[in-house]
Design a protein around this nucleic acid. Structure first.
Lengths: 330, 330
DNA sequence: CTGAAAGCGCTTACAG
DNA sequence: CTGAAAGCGCTTACAG
């Protein structure tokens, strides 16, 4: 095998050219199926390339051609079906606009993951929680679009407005006779989440006191465990609203195991609007967010920012409204 | 704003250098937080960069530094939870080895999506079905690792060996009294899938005739629709094994809606081992594949191939065994 | 049909 | 602390 060289230790276009006894641009022609090359030469070049295990450098090519733009998508936890659903929507919208998607999972260390992503992409989209403002406008950083950003956030992002849907849900529940609702919140740092606070307030406006149960996870296991505790407590709630659908699924499985009838004894609802919610028994009532709309806005905003739109302009904040989907569980 | 130029229309390091009145390598120092630069200069450069909306080109940087290797992951349908689970496992294993993951969804046109991926990555992993052999060794193409490849495949890949698990399942079912099993297969081109054929043969060896119901989708809706037809047919099956868990979830929801007791009247099983299977009612019996093992083998193989390992070597074919997970539904 | 030249945007030594 | 030079690997006009 002839001598591969260079930074990567792989053979380059020059190695192939030398091996085939042609110039580099003839190699380009052969590799890219371009015209103006004789069949004989082409075969000789391809053979040499194969022999050397030559693969064009995407950096070299990108530098010369511009290359396809890449969108970084930072998700918290691919194990929660919400994020794959989001990723699917983003991949489709981005693809339609000629962008490819680089996927990273920011388990625990979103800052590090974000920085790594930024170096390889032209814009980044993701859920960053309340700390997102810190990352905006990092020198040399890619434009960052936050998802489900708080109302008072100052950086570009898509806001999930759940106010109306939350009101509908609480009214629906109270009208159905709910008097002792509980919210299974996710609050890693102790302070209630925006969704949690919204629910408590909405119940309050209806004259109904609502328990808020914080905690440090947001998966099905936590939903199952915490709802088990709740159901065993002296004043068992007659409704449980979970921080997300995944936790709500955990709640449902606990109820089933404990022989607690849903919605007869306890009404259960989630947040997100995952398709699986329609497959379980009983089917899950939820506050659904339109991920297609979210993806459309997020991708559009990311591209606009990359193209120089101001990060503090009015167009840098988008809003998508959630809606109540009533199914069997509540 | 000073004049951005070049291929991308964005400002380059030279624009910033000019605007700040310094040389390009001083810009590099400022942008990358390197030492040997005075605070004053650094601030001036950063200000100029900000003003010009400068973002270093990842191609330029990659060409100079080598850059992080990228793994392309081509999935069929992110809407099927199997693929996100796979993606999660791949992202984690790849990340642990310093690779980032470019995610693409190959809805309908795997060939086109693959080609696009190859240009931007150093290796590709994905489910390609029986046609995968065609794509191997494309000149200039990235090494491709197939997932769930057939026993007779000739290209690098990870084989999902379900033979033992299928035997266990059929024995379990027959022992439980199943006499009229049906398989809800996915067979877009009419020929039974490998899983379908395996199941039919296994039942046959036990002296049990098994119906095979082909069809063109593999989602919950198809599972629901086709099982509804099955349940309404004159000789209703007493067991339904679905091509995958998602279809099995559709079967379960149909049974529930039709008031058919599972597993009392019909036993139901899926294939994949999705976590949601443990959350539904009844919980889903399934043939589980260890996605961590799959991801480990696939990533390891992809990296080995990228580093020059032979595509036809013995190490270019890996195997992961599925196992039977018995839950409530069968 | 083939090749010499220039350039894409960055970083890494090396001088000063 | 700052800059001139060289090079990373490719492609795109342009000559021949």
């Amino acid at each position: 095998m002839a001598g591969p060289q260079g930074l990567t230790g792989r053979s380059t276009i020059l190695d192939v050219a030398a091996a085939a006894g042609v110039s580099r641009q003839t190699v380009t022609r052969a590799m890219n199926g371009m015209p103006d090359i004789s069949t004989t030469t082409k075969e000789r070049v391809l053979a040499a390339a194969d022999r050397l295990g030559y693969r064009p450098s995407r950096f070299g090519r990108g530098l010369a051609t511009g290359g396809d733009p890449q969108l970084g998508l930072l998700v918290e936890d691919l194990t929660n079906p919400y994020f794959p659903e989001l990723a699917a929507a983003i991949v489709r919208k981005a693809g339609a606009r000629g962008w490819t998607v680089l996927l990273a999972e920011g388990t625990g260390a979103p800052a590090g993951a974000l920085e790594a992503l930024e170096g390889q992409t032209d814009a980044v989209v993701g859920h960053f929680g309340p700390r997102a403002d810190r990352w905006l406008d990092r020198p040399g950083g890619a434009p960052v679009v936050g998802l489900d950003v708080r109302a008072d956030a100052t950086h570009p992002g898509v806001r999930f407005d759940r106010a109306a849907a939350v009101n509908e849900l609480t009214e629906h529940l109270v009208r159905a006779g709910v008097r002792r609702p509980a919210v299974l919140d996710a609050s890693p740092d102790g302070t209630p989440s925006e969704r949690g606070a919204l629910l408590v307030e909405a119940f309050q406006r209806l004259g109904t006191r609502c328990r808020l149960l914080g905690g440090d996870g947001e998966d099905a296991a936590r939903g199952a465990a915490d709802s088990a505790a709740l159901l065993a407590s002296p004043d068992r709630p007659d409704a449980i609203v979970a921080f997300n659908d995944l936790m709500a699924l955990g709640v449902l499985s606990t109820c089933r195991r404990a022989g607690v009838d849903v919605p007869g004894e306890v009404r259960v609802a989630g947040i997100d609007g995952l398709p699986v919610g329609a497959l379980v028994a009983p089917t899950l009532t939820t506050l659904a967010v339109d991920l297609d709309a979210v993806a459309r806005e997020a991708v559009d905003l990311a591209i606009a920012l990359r193209d120089g739109a101001p990060a503090d302009g009015p167009d840098a904040r988008r809003t998508v409204h959630s809606r109540l989907v009533v199914r069997e569980s509540a």
